[in-house]
């Protein structure tokens, strides 16, 4: 388990910590991390933003997806030291204060989440998709979300939410 000690995040006493600057959701953070510390550990344990989830810590589930300089990456297989000076966006950065993003609203409306554990990763992958393609096709949605596992919803509601958020004729369910 990780420890935030005086010498920085990580437990390897033989390795020196390095100072890494991350701009997370528009705020700069300087964190001291051992070389083996991953980006998801830095975000969750050092910066304290626990919205980003870790389901496998081996790059297979997508729950840890964040946007690194605008591109979705798996934060569990990205080392924090690689990200010095980077812009990071996490699920906490999607809403504008109390106002959820259109995609978040659509997820709520379509019931695109149950336990919610996959949701932060799904939202980040889908946000990146919508930022590069405002009206993605079903195939593009499938491609963009293929690395994000969801065990609860069966995915149909998630695709509908992305279609709804991009104004492609999917009607709101609850409103």
């Amino acid at each position: 388990m990780l420890d935030v000690t005086k010498s920085g995040l990580g437990t390897d006493a033989r390795a020196r910590s390095r100072l890494v600057s991350l701009c997370v959701n528009g705020e700069w953070h300087e964190v001291a991390v051992k070389p083996r510390v991953t980006l998801v550990e830095a975000i969750r344990e050092a910066i304290g933003l626990t919205g980003t989830k870790a389901g496998c810590e081996s790059g297979t589930c997508g729950a840890c997806t964040v946007l690194l300089d605008g591109r979705p990456v798996l934060a569990c297989i990205t080392l924090a030291v690689e990200c010095d000076g980077a812009q990071v966006r996490t699920v906490e950065g999607l809403a504008d204060g109390e106002k959820l993003s259109a995609l978040q609203e659509a997820f709520l409306d379509q019931g695109a989440l149950q336990c919610g554990f996959c949701t932060p990763g799904m939202l980040m992958s889908a946000t990146a998709l919508l930022e590069r393609s405002s009206q993605p096709t079903r195939e593009e949605i499938n491609k963009a979300l293929e690395g994000n596992l969801c065990r609860c919803t069966g995915y149909n509601a998630i695709v509908d939410a992305v279609l709804q958020a991009s104004d492609q004729g999917v009607k709101p369910v609850m409103k």
Partner: peptide
């Protein structure tokens, strides 16, 4: 939601 999840 329960139905879809169970189908999957």
């Amino acid at each position: 939601g329960q139905i879809d999840g169970q189908i999957s």
